[in-house]
Design a binder for these strands. Structure first.
Lengths: 237, 237
DNA sequence: TGCTTGTATTATGCATACAAAATGAACCTA
DNA sequence: TAGGTTCATTTTGTATGCATAATACAAGCA
């Protein structure tokens, strides 16, 4: 007899019988989230004792997680002096945007070739949800769907290597992108660009989508750079 | 009077005030080398006790290194069952080549814009060294310079994010690329392509270089795929 | 005060210890 | 023999301990 009275509360995590979750992976996800969402700001020192206590793990898996995140570029390891959240200097942001541009352009081209009609419709749906949040002036929600669209598009490429690379880079600049939306004029422009991108995708015009994505990201870069110029302290999403 | 008779022996290490080396980083480099050069073949189980003994480190830094390499895609972590050298299935190779193509194309474009004449000359020098090894039929040395050229070109982009990403992907497929050179006809073609690439770079014709690099990599992919079809066991460099 | 120097404290890097899971061999059973 | 069961061994995952480097801070001195 299996009295799993409390099971429902856990079912989310237990139902899936995929490989057992390793502690360091949980820590990686937790920390990445905290960094990406700005809870841990660039430059913050990551004290091992404090963090491991906070996350309920010992220093060993925490340190493993830090190594992993260092490889992703989210954390910087200072020998004998611990780890900090990787600072985001302007040069690096520029470089990351350049690479993301190339990746997203490639993704767009592949998506036009490979994506199913259903998948494209899913993007269209996300697009309109995004528009609705724009109409309400809800920046946070707008941004969430904006990100979803970009990530989804990259996934539609069918190239998992590309997608995972894009996600990794995106994590590095996500916060910067977020605050770069604050100008209403630019926000309106971004919407227009997204509309064009969607049209190109629906028409499966790879070459055009490629160019639109490149420009879109280049425009975004300009904004992000402006923001990094002025604000050193970034607001929370 | 400054009798620094023995100073030179130390100055090398003391002059450079770069951060002290961490053990796990040394292990990362060691393991990556062993994987890239085929000493550890794809699928090989990485026994922590054995490896740490071999490398003269305890399990802790070794495990940290494994996490790092897992993030690079060179190692696969199987929860509760250790780590293996990441297997290279054909699909993944295809995806990696697609991404490398995009990265190298971008690098070529940037290099045409940003590289100094000296830097381009350095590539030219490497090119002729490569040709000499080709003339002698020395595949191993030819390949070494071939790789150097590609890596150098990517560095000339001036985009360190791009370069480090490229290196990471290259590590994943380097061995496969090596054996894909075994056909003499293809080898001759590769030489021709390299000559054209060099010409485009010297002429700083970014658009053309971009296309040449894309094609070059696409051609290479075809070969690599053929090789992966037939040989499961790959010869050592 | 401003600066150095020495010392106490803390944090990091690595090694080791222990618990839980996986592996494998011997044995049984059909 | 094929397949399953039990239990010892091995291996992994995590926690803890210890040595060393970094930091903070107070005393001493100009």
């Amino acid at each position: 007899m299996n009295l799993d009275l409390e099971a429902p509360a856990f079912s989310d995590t237990l139902a899936e019988n995929d490989p057992p979750r390793l502690l360091h992976e949980a820590v990686v996800d937790r920390l990445r989230d905290m960094i990406v969402h700005g809870v841990l700001e660039p430059g913050t020192k990551l004290n091992e004792r404090v963090l491991s206590a906070q996350l309920g793990a010992s220093r060993t898996p925490l340190r493993e997680a830090l190594k992993y995140l260092a490889s992703e570029g989210l954390v910087e390891l200072l020998p004998n002096r611990g780890a900090i959240v990787a600072p985001l200097d302007r040069g690096r942001v520029k470089q990351i945007f350049a690479v993301m541009g190339a990746l997203e352009a490639l993704a767009g081209e592949l998506a036009c070739r490979n994506a199913s009609d259903d998948a494209i419709n899913e993007i269209r749906a996300l697009h309109y949800q995004m528009l609705s949040h724009h109409a309400r002036g809800d920046l946070a929600e707008y941004f969430r769907f904006n990100q979803e669209i970009h990530l989804k598009l990259v996934e539609l490429s069918g190239n998992e290597v590309l997608a995972s690379m894009y996600r990794g880079l995106n994590a590095n600049v996500r916060r910067a992108r977020y605050i770069a939306n604050l100008s209403q004029e630019r926000w309106n422009n971004a919407i227009k660009e997204h509309q064009q991108m969607l049209d190109a995708l629906v028409a499966r015009d790879g070459a055009r989508l490629q160019k639109l994505l490149s420009d879109h990201l280049a425009n975004k870069l300009v904004l992000v750079m402006e923001v990094l110029e002025t604000a050193e302290k970034l607001p929370q999403p």
